[in-house]
C-alpha cells in the first residue's frame, strides 16, 4: 500500500563521503518517523531548473530520529544525483515520510542478500536488522573497485565470514547459481543492484524452480545493459519526431511534446507507460521489470519511463486514437 506524498521539510545535518563517488547525506525531518529496513524517502530535486523528485533508500536511522541516505554520483545520471551532491549542511529539502516497497520478512530459515554498487543502501539496512536478530544470513556484495565498496568494514564486523565481497577490478564474480542452490528451500533472497545482476539472479531463481515470492528485489529504474545515449523517437500517428537526450526519458520528452502518456511508478514496474513499438532502427535497451524476458525479446512494446534505445530511432504508437464516432 502506498502512502500519499505528504511533503515536509528536512534539514541537511551532515554530509560524509564514504567512497570517492558515494556520499552520505544526513537529514533531520521535521516530523518524527521510524524507517524499517528497505524503506525509502522521496526528495524534491531541481534538474535544469525543473522540479522533480527522486527516491533514496534509508541506510540507517540516527538516534535522534534523523535519516541517513547515500547518493552515488553518476555520470549518466538523469540529474538527481548531481543536485543531491550540491547540498551543503544546513540546506533544507522537501521529503516524504519513509515508506517501504521492499519489505523484509522475518522468520525465514535463511537469508541471501545480494547488493551491486549503490544497491547496497537498502541491503545494508537489511543486513544490520537480520544480524541483530541473529538470523542466518549470507551476503554477496559487488562493486567496480575496492574503494567503491561502501560499508565494507561495517559489513565485515556485522557478518564476519558470511559476507563475500567482489570487485570488477579484481576480476572476482559471484557464483549465483551455486549460491541459490545452497540456499535453504524456504530461504529468501533480497537483491538490489544494476539490471544485469538482477536479471541474472531472477533468471537463476526461475531456472531452479524457486517460488517467485521468495525473491525480493528493488529496481532503481535507471540502469540498463548499455550506457545511456541520445536517440530519436517518432510518433507517426501525430507526425511528431523528438530527440531524447541521454539524461531524459522517452516518457518525459513525449509528455513535454504534448503526447499524453499514462505513468505511475516511473521505475519500470507497473507497466502503465508502456507503448506499442511500430518500427525500430537500432536496439532497445529494456530496463523495466514489467515485461517478461520473452516480451522483451519480441520488442512489441516498451516501458517509456525507463527503457531506451542504444542509438538510432524508434517509432511508437500512443494511446491517442481520436474520439470514436458512436452513431454513424
Amino acid at each position: 500500500m502506498r502512502n500519499l506524498s505528504v511533503w515536509h521539510e528536512a534539514q541537511v545535518i551532515g554530509i560524509q563521503n564514504i567512497t570517492p563517488t558515494v556520499r552520505e547525506i544526513h537529514l533531520q525531518p521535521a516530523a518524527m518517523e521510524s524507517a524499517q529496513p528497505g524503506s525509502h524517502i522521496n526528495v524534491k530535486v531541481m534538474i535544469d531548473d525543473r522540479p522533480d523528485h527522486r527516491s533514496y533508500s534509508v541506510v540507517r536511522q540516527l538516534d535522534n530520529g534523523g535519516l541517513v541516505i547515500a547518493v552515488k554520483q553518476l555520470p549518466d545520471s538523469r540529474g538527481g544525483s548531481r543536485y543531491m551532491w550540491t547540498l551543503e549542511p544546513g540546506a533544507r529539502v522537501s521529503v516524504t515520510p519513509a515508506a517501504c516497497d521492499f519489505e523484509l520478512s522475518y522468520g525465514a530459515p535463511e537469508y541471501l542478500l545480494i547488493a551491486g554498487g549503490i544497491g547496497i543502501t537498502p541491503i545494508f539496512a537489511m543486513a544490520r536488522a537480520l544480524a541483530s536478530r541473529g538470523e542466518k544470513v549470507r551476503m554477496l556484495y559487488a562493486a567496480r573497485s575496492r574503494e567503491e565498496l561502501a560499508y565494507a568494514e561495517e559489513l565485515r564486523a556485522l557478518l564476519d565470514d558470511s559476507v563475500q565481497l567482489f570487485t570488477d577490478a579484481d576480476g572476482t564474480h559471484m557464483d549465483i547459481a551455486a549460491e541459490i542452490e545452497n540456499l535453504h528451500p524456504k530461504g529468501e533472497l533480497y537483491i538490489c543492484g544494476p539490471l544485469g545482476l538482477m536479471e541474472a539472479v531472477r533468471g537463476q531463481w526461475r531456472a531452479q524452480g524457486r517460488e517467485p515470492a521468495g525473491l525480493h528485489y528493488e529496481t532503481f529504474g535507471s540502469s540498463g545493459r548499455h550506457p545511456s545515449g541520445p536517440f530519436t523517437v517518432k510518433v507517426p500517428r501525430l507526425g511528431l519526431e523528438v530527440n531524447v537526450p541521454k539524461d531524459r526519458s522517452i516518457l518525459d520528452v513525449l509528455t513535454e511534446a504534448g503526447v499524453e502518456v499514462l505513468s505511475d511508478c516511473r521505475r519500470g514496474e507497473c507497466g502503465l507507460c508502456a507503448m506499442d513499438v511500430t518500427s525500430i532502427n537500432g536496439e532497445i535497451d529494456h530496463r523495466d521489470v514489467f515485461f517478461s524476458e520473452e516480451q522483451h525479446s519480441e520488442n512489441k512494446q516498451l516501458c517509456t519511463c525507463v527503457s531506451r534505445l542504444v542509438s538510432g530511432s524508434i517509432a511508437v504508437d500512443p494511446a491517442w486514437k481520436g474520439d470514436p464516432e458512436l452513431r454513424k
Partner: peptide, 17 residues
C-alpha cells in the same frame, strides 16, 4: 502468508513492490 503478491491479472510478471 508473508504478504508477498504471487499473482497479478493480465501480466506475465509480478510487480516487485
Amino acid at each position: 502468508d508473508a504478504g508477498r503478491c504471487t499473482h497479478m491479472p493480465s501480466q506475465e510478471t509480478l510487480n516487485p513492490s
